[in-house]
Write a protein that binds this DNA or RNA. Structure first.
Length: 245
DNA sequence: GCGACAG
DNA sequence: ATCTTGTCGC
């Protein structure tokens, strides 16, 4: 997969400066496009993206997995991954800066260009509308969807708990604007927090995410599979640490 | 000092 | 995210 934006752009500023992070976010968010309606019939492939971490000699390492599925058969058609040292600490609101280097490194190995990417984390549901799903789309140049397992409170606004049945949801409205959606993907489980990433609208994101849920997990299949995959890869790299770098 | 805090 | 055993329930 060819990536237009150069990864080196990510390293052109001081990695631990939150002000620099904010500057980047503010610059990119002006270009967010949330008006594309994407029909499921037009989709051929979808991908999940996730990372796992571990420590070695006091240093942080991570592995990123991207798994591509045929959207309709749900069969895996490609798996790629990347592993390496993690340079940026986790700071709520700036997750993308920590995870993007490995995500881009893995994405470059894709031979298929997925029609849509699902991320483990927020997209537009973010105080600066620049969660990892949104931010990553500027590199991938493909529609992205954010799927978070827990709620990130913005401007002291809580979400309204959706009804306890499959598909029930409540929109997360902050200051009169819809940021995302709390979605009950299965009965008797906690809701997930869905939001647009970029290049797709919220209703399409919801339809796609819901059609990718089965009885295995409350999370869409691509996210679930990459989560399992990163744990497997981590176990491997922990035993073969020298294969990294 | 205390609580909050996507992953 | 990660560290971790058992355990309640379908």
């Amino acid at each position: 997969m060819v990536l237009k934006m150069n990864i080196n752009n990510i390293h052109d500023f001081n990695l631990n400066q939150e002000n620099d992070f904010l500057t980047i976010q503010t610059k990119l968010k002006k270009h967010i496009n949330l008006v594309n309606s994407i029909s499921k019939d037009a989709l051929q492939t979808c991908a999940g993206v996730d990372l796992a971490y571990w420590e070695e000699d006091g240093e942080a390492f991570g592995v990123c997995s991207i798994i591509v599925l045929d959207f309709h058969t749900k069969r895996v058609i490609e798996k790629v991954h990347s592993a390496g040292k993690i340079a940026v600490p986790y700071i709520a609101g700036f997750l993308a800066f920590r995870e993007l280097p490995l995500i881009i490194k893995a994405a470059k190995k894709l031979t298929i260009e997925p029609d849509v990417f699902l991320f483990d984390g927020n997209g537009y549901l973010h105080f600066n509308h620049m969660g990892i799903a949104t931010h990553a789309a500027f590199f991938l140049e493909k529609p992205t969807i954010g799927i978070a397992k827990t709620y990130l409170k913005i401007k002291q606004t809580d979400f309204v708990m959706p009804d306890n049945n499959f598909g029930a949801y409540t929109d997360i409205v902050i200051g009169g604007e819809v940021y995302g959606r709390a979605v009950r993907t299965r009965q008797d489980v906690k809701p997930i927090f869905l939001s647009c990433g970029h290049l797709i609208d919220l209703d399409s994101s919801y339809d796609i995410a819901m059609s990718l849920v089965n009885r295995e997990s409350r999370l869409p299949i691509p996210i679930r599979l990459t989560d399992l995959e990163t744990h497997t890869l981590r176990a491997y790299y922990r035993e073969n640490q020298k294969l990294i770098e």
